[in-house]
Computed example of a mutant assay.
Amino acid sequence: MTPTHRGAGLLLALCASFFATGGFAQTAPSSLGGPTPNLAGSIERPIRYRPEGGDFVIENGAETFNRPLYGGDTAFRVDGGDRPEFVLYLPGRGGNLRLGVAGPSGALWLHAAQWIVTRYRPGELIHEIRDPLLGKGVLRIEALAYAVTEGLTLRIEGSELPPGLELIWAFGGITGQRGVRDGDIGTEKIPISEWFQFRSAFAETNRVLADTEGFQVSAPQAVIVGASSAPARFAKGDAAKWDDIGRLPASAASDQGGVAIGRAMLESNAPLIVSLQRVDPNAAGDLADYTAVSAGRAGGPVAPIIRPPAFARDALAARFEEARRLSRWCPRTASGRSSRRPRSI
């Protein structure tokens, strides 16, 4: 038999086997590890958040960057979560903000505190924090996105705090990275809580300037200025020491490739406002997928945005109250309109 005849015979044998075993029959997706039926025994899961008044409340939740805060009618947002850690989204990665405390008993990043109660309400996140480092004290952090511009405003106040306690905050990592669907939950190859974490490489294109009034972090995609309502010390830190609160505040860095650091004393019943404000005119276009969908429709290049200059230190408290007032009636913040969806309640 020639090689051609042998090949033809093998093909006929394979075809016969295919039809004899029902080769055209569909295989159940579940047998391949795919979709499974929504049966009562397979969909039950604990309720993580509880409703309390107009809030969703959780104690010692583990999620980060799953709760968006919106301000004005732009695509900018701030992503917070169960833990007091934040990331700005321009759209595109606009920098991470970490908060910590240091005192005679040691130092601690607040997202690692022993007890955190988080309240999520329309346009606002509230964290109540307890930890042995705070003694009998409680630290309360209220977070809002600015409504009249793009940025984040925090009101930080404690009660029964130990003496000599200092607030430390670090900011940096502006890259403009967009992700698959602008950081939408469930669309990246890793969880959003990991995808939005800071990496020292994100600071490579950032230029950090610091003086007695605040700091400025500049990147090709955005310029963010930081300030506080009370006297504070501002400096540049080593991005590689981001996770080490014991070493980061005392680290040194050049203007290029570092992160910005702020330090201010905390006293009981004395509110402190921490502000991050975008001041550049840049505007981001749509993702490639969105552009393809809208191809052929009328439109033009994205126009620059006129943003207000940096707010004065003595205006930060009033600007916080303004953001809170506007968040309570603005349809965008009240509805939480977004493609982002919170995880299970």
Rank of each mutant, 00 (worst) to 15 (best):
T4P: 02
G9D: 09
L10G: 08
L12Q: 02
C15P: 01
S17E: 05
S17R: 00
A25P: 04
Q26V: 12
T27I: 15
P29S: 10
S31W: 10
L32D: 04
G33L: 04
G33C: 00
A40T: 10
A40Y: 05
G41V: 05
P46M: 10
I47V: 14
R48A: 04
R50P: 01
E52Y: 00
F56W: 15
I58S: 04
N60K: 01
T64N: 09
T64Y: 02
T64A: 09
N66Y: 14
Y70F: 15
Y70R: 11
D73T: 13
T74W: 05
F76H: 13
R83L: 12
V87F: 02
L90R: 14
P91M: 09
R93K: 15
G94M: 00
N96C: 02
G100P: 09
G103A: 06
P104S: 15
G106N: 05
L108K: 00
W109A: 05
L110G: 07
W115G: 03
V117E: 14
R119C: 03
R119W: 01
R121N: 09
R121G: 15
R121A: 12
E124F: 04
L125V: 02
H127A: 13
G135D: 08
G137N: 00
R140T: 15
R140G: 04
E142F: 08
A145Y: 09
V148D: 14
V148W: 08
G151V: 13
L152I: 08
T153Y: 03
G158F: 03
S159H: 08
E160I: 04
E160G: 06
L165A: 07
L167S: 01
L167D: 10
L167H: 01
A170C: 08
F171V: 07
I174W: 08
R181M: 12
R181P: 00
D182W: 05
G183A: 06
G183T: 10
G183Q: 01
D184M: 14
I185N: 15
G186Q: 07
T187H: 11
I190K: 13
W195F: 11
Q197Y: 02
F198L: 14
S200D: 14
E204V: 08
E204Q: 11
V208D: 03
T212V: 11
T212R: 12
E213K: 09
A219Q: 00
P220N: 04
A230W: 07
A230Y: 04
R233A: 06
A239P: 05
D244M: 14
G246P: 05
S251L: 08
A252D: 07
S254N: 06
D255A: 09
G258T: 01
G258C: 04
L266C: 07
E267Y: 10
N269K: 11
P271N: 03
P271G: 01
I273S: 06
Q277N: 09
D280E: 11
N282S: 11
D286G: 05
R297M: 15
G300N: 07
P309K: 10
R313W: 06
L316R: 14
A317R: 13
A317Q: 12
A318C: 02
A318I: 00
E322M: 07
R324L: 13
L326M: 08
R332V: 12
A334R: 15
G336A: 05
R337C: 11
R337Y: 14
S338I: 06
S344A: 03
